[in-house]
Design a protein around this nucleic acid. Structure first.
Lengths: 207, 207
DNA sequence: CACAAATTGGAATGTCAACTCTAAAAATGG
DNA sequence: CCATTTTTAGAGTTGACATTCCAATTTGTG
C-alpha cells in the first residue's frame, strides 16, 4: 500500500514472504535487468503463487525496486566490510583486490556490480532510486575510507594522503572494472585498474 | 530483412531515412535505456510516420540496437580520437581529462557513457551486442594506447611503462567515473579517479 | 473460542509494445 | 516512359505485462 516509508505490521510469515520476494527479485533483476524482469518472473522465482501477494507487500514495481536496492546494498557491504575493516597493510589491500577479482571469476564475469547495474539502469529514470543508490555508495566509500584511515593510523600510509580522495577514486575505479569485466568476460581490466590504484596509493606509503 | 551482415541496396533517400532512425534511436535509448525505448518512441523522434519503415531497414529491434552501438562507437571515438592523437605531454593528458569532465557537466551529469550504458544493459542479455561493444572498447583502448605510446616516443614517458596496461586501466577508470557521475550528479568521482590515474602515470614520467 | 487483521489464491482488465500485412507513392534504370 | 524496385502509409494482430478485485484462508489476540 505504501512505497517505502512506513513499515506495515507484519507477522512472521508475512515478513518471510516479503523477504523471499525481495531476494528473488534481486536475483532475477541482477540477471535480467530491472526492465527485463516481469512481476511474474519474480513470483515464479520467489515461489509465490499470486500477484496479489506482491502487491500486498509493495505498492508497485518501483517500490519493489527500492527494496531491492536496499537489499543489494546490504549484501555488497556485507561482503566488503569485513575485508575493508582490517585494511592494515598493502597486503590486506591486495587481498581485497584478489577477493573482488575472485568473486567475478566465480560468477563467470557476468552481472557486473549488483549496485552498479542498478545505478546504470535507474539513475536517469528513477530519481528516488538514484538517491538510494547514492546513499549506498556513500556507505561503501565510507567503509573504504575508514580502511585507508586505519592504515594511516598504523603508520602504513602517509598522513598527508587524502583518504577521502583515494577512497572515492578506488571505489570509482572498481565500478569501472566491474563494468568492463561484465563486458569483456575477463578480469584483466579490473585487475589493471585496481593494480594501478593500489600502486598509486603506494606512492603515499611510508617507506 | 537481414540483421547486420548484408547491406541492402539503398537509394539516397533510403539511406537518409535509415540514418535518421539510427540517430534518433541512439538519442532516445541514451536517455531512456534500450528496454525503456519503444519502437514508437523511435519513430516519433525520427519523424518517421510508420513502423513499416523501421522494419524495412531493420529486421527487428535487436538489429536496430546493433546499428545504434556502431553509431555510438563512432560518435565517441570521433570525440576522443582528436584529443588522444596528440597526447604528447602531461598537459595534453590533463586537457583530455578536462574535456571529458566538461562534457559531463554540459549534459548535466546525466546519461553516463553512451557505450557504457549500453554495455551495462546489454552485456548479459545480448551476446551479439556484447561482442560489438567489446570491439568498440578495443578501438577506444587502442586510441589511448597510441597516445601514451607517442608520449613514450617523445621521451615524456618512460619506455618501461606498459602502455597496454595503462591504457586499459585508464579507460576502465573513465568508465567508472562516468557511471559515478551519472549516479552522483557531480563529477567529483570522475575527477578523483582520472587524477589518480594520471598521477599514477606520472610516476613513470621521465624527469 | 471468536473476531479482526493479515495473508493468500486466482481470475480478470486494460494498456502498451513488437511486429505484420497490404497496398499506395516515389524513385531508378533501361 | 515503362517496368522494376525501393520507400512510405496505416491499419491490424498478437502477446505480454503491470495492476486490480473479490473471495478464501490463515494467523494473532482478547
Amino acid at each position: 500500500m505504501n512505497s517505502s516509508t512506513e513499515t506495515r505490521r507484519l507477522t512472521a510469515k508475512g515478513r518471510a514472504t516479503r523477504d523471499r520476494i525481495v531476494a528473488a527479485a534481486a536475483a532475477v533483476m541482477y540477471d535480467q535487468g530491472v526492465a527485463g524482469t516481469s512481476t511474474e518472473d519474480v513470483l515464479t522465482a520467489a515461489q509465490v503463487s499470486s500477484p496479489s501477494q506482491l502487491y500486498h507487500y509493495f505498492g508497485d514495481k518501483k517500490s519493489l525496486v527500492q527494496a531491492v536496492i536496499e537489499y543489494q546494498t546490504e549484501r555488497v557491504l556485507g561482503f566488503q566490510r569485513p575485508l575493508l575493516r582490517r585494511l592494515d597493510s598493502f597486503e590486506a589491500l591486495e587481498a581485497w583486490r584478489d577477493a573482488v577479482v575472485q568473486a567475478q571469476h566465480a560468477r563467470g564475469c557476468r552481472g557486473g556490480c549488483p549496485i552498479g547495474s542498478l545505478a546504470s539502469e535507474l539513475s536517469d529514470a528513477d530519481p528516488q532510486a538514484r538517491t538510494k543508490l547514492a546513499e549506498g555508495y556513500a556507505q561503501w566509500e565510507g567503509a573504504i575510507r575508514d580502511g585507508l584511515a586505519s592504515m594511516q593510523e598504523r603508520g602504513e600510509l602517509d598522513e598527508e594522503a587524502d583518504a577521502g580522495d583515494l577512497s572515492l577514486a578506488l571505489l570509482t575505479a572498481l565500478q569501472g572494472g566491474l563494468l568492463m569485466t561484465q563486458m569483456r568476460r575477463d578480469t584483466l581490466a579490473l585487475e589493471a585498474v585496481l593494480n594501478a590504484m593500489i600502486d598509486r596509493i603506494r606512492c603515499h606509503a611510508v617507506g
